[in-house]
Design a protein around this nucleic acid. Structure first.
Length: 274
DNA sequence: ACCACAACCTGGCCGC
DNA sequence: TGCGGCCAGGTTGTGG
């Protein structure tokens, strides 16, 4: 599922291909992919605009236009981009086609149809509701500690709350908690300062390594160039139920936390602090 | 503040 | 080989 490292990878790959290009038109093959405004208004507002930059905030991909608007794309579970310079027809799960002035087409491919496009003004966008960016200097142990104090929620739930930390999803939350040796059900306000510092370091390290390997490719996800990422190959607990922990050989367990599959090592990640 | 559950969707997997 | 049923999980919304 596209989380921060996957969206970062999409951003990096799209940037050299689309920045400076003028959008000729956008075609929605599944109209519900467009969240706002209406198709007619969107069409009017995006036609002939130049893509001035590609950015990322949390799990949102941001296309900056030569107007007061930005185009936000959220991949949700199965969204991905493919860029084509040929003339082949869109593949079966293509939901949106963006036609650029140099003949390139951007296909938004999304089997489960959860992904969303929206055109918003810069000062009134869902981005303002997002929390800290974990890959910036704003993400300090002190700030992490501040958002955890008084919170009784499981630390795993806090990590995937986009209004607290932007960009971490189910897989990377599990990976970071394993690297920090913290049980996912520990209450957020029970972590010591040392554990919080360790968790911050683990989050940065897990995300950095995933970005370096081009993000993860699970289920139907792939890159704009059609290739797949390799980050999932270095996952230590996520999606590895029953496999032996790389540290202590104990089988990885799977529990459900807030309706989400949660993987951890019951020996290395104790509920009682150690 | 915290939690549960439904909705949005389809492909893949399981058991029979 | 096929068919029904369930699971995967980001986000939003409702209601306890």
């Amino acid at each position: 599922m596209p989380e921060l490292p996957e969206v970062e990878t999409i951003k990096n790959q799209l940037m050299p291909l689309v920045v400076g290009r003028r959008i000729q038109s956008v075609e929605f093959l599944w109209t519900k992919t467009l969240l706002a405004p209406s198709i007619a208004e969107f069409d009017q507002a995006i036609r002939d605009r130049v893509i001035e930059g590609v950015d990322r905030r949390g799990k949102y991909l941001i296309l900056r236009l030569d107007s007061a608007n930005v185009l936000l794309v959220h991949m949700r579970m199965t969204g991905s981009f493919l860029v084509s310079n040929g003339n082949e027809p869109p593949s079966r799960h293509t939901r949106v086609v963006v036609y650029l002035d140099n003949g390139l087409r951007m296909f938004f491919v999304d089997p489960r149809k959860f992904g969303k496009f929206q055109l918003v003004s810069e000062d009134n966008s869902p981005l303002s509701r997002l929390g800290m960016e974990p890959m910036t200097g704003a993400f300090t142990a002190q700030r992490l500690s501040a958002v955890m104090t008084g919170r009784k929620i499981p630390v795993k739930v806090l990590l995937v709350d986009q209004s607290i930390l932007a960009g971490i999803g189910n897989m990377y939350a599990d990976e970071a908690l394993f690297e920090a040796l913290i049980h996912p059900l520990r209450s957020a306000d029970s972590l010591s300062e040392q554990e919080i510092a360790r968790l911050r370091g683990a989050i940065i390290s897990v995300l950095t390594k995933a970005i370096e390997s081009g993000g993860a490719s699970v289920s139907n996800y792939f890159h704009p160039d059609g290739l797949k990422g390799k980050a999932q190959e270095s996952f230590k607990v996520a999606h590895r139920k029953g496999e032996n922990c790389i540290i202590c050989r104990t089988p990885i367990e799977r529990i459900v936390v807030r309706q989400r599959g949660t993987y951890f090592c019951p020996n290395c990640q104790r509920r009682i602090r150690h």
